[in-house]
Design a binder for these strands. Structure first.
Lengths: 191, 191
DNA sequence: CTGATTTTTGACCTGTAGTACAAGAATTCG
DNA sequence: CGAATTCTTGTACTACAGGTCAAAAATCAG
């Protein structure tokens, strides 16, 4: 019973995520969130408790969607190198296509809150570890498939690529597509 | 003539830089700056005009110091690979030694203001390009010295390493020294 | 319809960011 | 010393961040 919600929480979290992603946590005001979600400030606080809790939900959603996307793209047919390249290129291109490059919400959060905020640090770490794991598995599969040399250290390469990815999403803020693609090529030389 | 300044501007900019570095641009208040520099809020505005202008000076100082440090470390005796590894290790360890990992002011700025702020974007891009150039020169020198294979594309490797560096300074917010050093090793495999 | 329950709305509140400004202090010049 | 100049200090001000709350609105059980 009781009055029914006038909005879908998941939808609101998603809108909030977009806003946090674009403007950053600190620079997003409750008013911004209200406008983005179309839900009154008061209702948001009623439903989510605080700006911070809403952000946690948004970050969680981002991580989940990111992991799914990563798995999906890596699993498409092709060699490990081809798939990983496609993955990196896709993320970089996505970054560059918007009116304003937003990078990666997790990376942005890592720099904005990392080290100062327990919860955020853990969340960011988890998504990074997840990515590394997916990359490692894909490389290992490449070794089974015979398209990656058996002597390659899958974990080390996965870490290198994940780190490169973080770098790319910072560089995407200031450099152009050509340079970023060049970096991707160099980073994949070890495969 | 007139009353002499009660503080050294350069010193104040340096203190301000430390604060911006630790807390980020948006999260640093005029009150923080006044406390960090020991100069009254009013005096700061009189001397520097605005928070933004002070930040520009601080970022500029950071870039200059960074470039000098890079050049200095790379120029010490050793092979290109040894020197570049030492450079990366030094930056990562510095990041980790403080009570709170601060990353790189330029990278932080790139993520906080990049794409939205012309001036900041330019400054960050300049420091990145500078770093790439110094790395390229050092690799090229390594080729002359014979410690780097002649077939290596110095510019591509320099870009890869600069990108790796950016990534490391993001990862340093959430990962430990061991993993970061592993990434450094992998990244230098191409030399 | 009444009451219980939950959501919405909008007003309201406290604190601080970012800046402006006026009055006073320190210094040099004549 | 007085005047001119430049810096300092502290107050004042506007705007907005972040959040709270009371009252109205919507639903359902009985």
């Amino acid at each position: 019973m009781g009055r029914p919600k006038g909005f879908e929480p998941e939808r609101a979290v998603e809108q909030a995520m977009q806003t946090f992603w674009t403007k950053g946590y600190g620079a997003t005001s409750p008013a911004d969130l209200a406008e983005a979600t179309g839900v009154g400030k008061g209702s948001l606080y009623h439903a989510f408790g605080s700006k911070r809790e809403l952000f946690d939900r948004a970050l969680q959603m981002y991580c989940r969607a990111g992991a799914e996307l990563t798995a999906e793209v890596l699993d498409r047919p092709g060699t490990a190198k081809e798939r990983i390249r496609a993955y990196l290129v896709m993320l970089v291109d996505r970054d560059l296509e918007g009116p304003v490059p937003r990078g990666c919400l997790a990376a942005n959060t890592a720099l904005e809150l990392g080290g100062r905020d327990e919860e955020a640090t853990r969340a960011v770490r988890r998504v990074a570890e997840q990515t590394i794991e997916l990359l490692r598995d894909r490389i290992a599969r490449g070794q089974l498939d015979g398209d990656v040399a058996a002597g390659v250290d899958a974990l080390a390469q996965a870490r290198l690529i994940a780190n490169t990815l973080m770098g790319l999403r910072v560089m995407a803020r200031t450099f152009d597509r050509t340079m970023l693609h060049g970096v991707i090529d160099s980073a994949l030389a070890g495969l």
